Every structure is written in structure tokens, then in C-alpha cells.
Simulated scan of single mutants.
Amino acid sequence: MNPILRALLNRLLGDRGERAAARLLRREGLRVLRRGYRTAHGEIDLIARDGDVLVFVEVKARRRGVPAEAVTVEKQRRLTLAALHFLKRHGLLECRSRFDVVSVLWPDDDGEPTLEHYRDAFEAQGRGQMFR
């Protein structure tokens, strides 16, 4: 497959996955505040509030396998730095926060995906570690 077409299809799958993940989080009572927060360190797919906790959500959408396994330690480090950027920029360094992962597994047909929400999926990584 053409690499440009593959990248476009992956982006479309990722966008659909983020929308499905946002719906799931809302059903679970979280308030989605932001989608696609970009920094030099990377992107945070969703930022939500769960009571008094700020939640940084990584969404992994795939057609097969275990999507959540793609959240490597390096990805966790980049997400930590991006979250720290967000907290500093908005004066929220004292705010409790956590990292969640939403796994979205799409069926081969156009059916509904299987979603799994992993709360508190990992701790802050690297030199930008945050405190709870």
C-alpha cells in the first residue's frame, strides 16, 4: 500500500478511535476538556477531568492485537513531558493528575469497536515526573 495512503488511513482510524474514547469517558462520568493537545514533546489525545483529578488519556486504536501494548515506556516519557507542559502552561502544577489509556479495537467490518479503559495505566516517567 502507498505509504501516504497508509498514513491517511491510520490517522482516520485514530480520529475515529479518539471520538469513541471520548464518548466512553463521558459515559463513565468524566468531563472531556481538550482533544489533541500538541507540544514539542508530542500530543496528548484527550485531557479530561474525573472529579478533582486531571486525566491525561492516550488512545490506541488498532484493527488487531492489543492496542494498549503500544504505549511503550518511551511513549509514557513523552506523554509525561507533554502533561507537565500543560500543567505549567495552565498554572495547574498543584492539581492531582493521572495517566489513563483507552484501547480501541476495531472489527474488520464497520461494526462497533471494543473499548477498554485502563485507569491510572502508568506512572509519570523520566525527568518530568509529577507528584500525586
Rank of each mutant, 00 (worst) to 15 (best):
M1W: 08
A7P: 00
L9K: 14
L9F: 10
N10R: 15
N10Q: 13
R11F: 03
R11L: 08
R16H: 12
G17D: 12
G17H: 07
R19S: 08
R19D: 14
R23E: 15
L25R: 04
L25W: 04
L25V: 00
R26W: 03
G29R: 02
L30T: 01
L30V: 00
R35Q: 14
R35T: 09
G36H: 13
G36N: 11
Y37N: 08
A40P: 07
I44V: 15
I44T: 14
L46P: 10
I47A: 10
I47N: 09
A48W: 04
D50N: 12
F56A: 03
R62A: 14
G65E: 05
V66Y: 10
P67W: 02
A70S: 15
V71P: 06
V73R: 15
V73N: 05
V73C: 01
V73I: 11
R78K: 15
R78L: 07
T80N: 11
L81Y: 04
L81D: 02
A82H: 01
A83D: 09
A83Y: 03
H85Y: 11
L87R: 10
K88I: 06
H90R: 12
H90D: 09
L93P: 09
L93R: 13
C95K: 15
R96L: 14
S97L: 05
F99E: 07
D100E: 10
V101E: 05
S103F: 11
L105F: 06
D109F: 06
D110Y: 07
G111D: 02
E112N: 08
P113M: 13
R119W: 03
R119V: 09
A121H: 13
E123P: 11
A124R: 08
M130Y: 08
M130D: 02
R132G: 13
R132F: 06
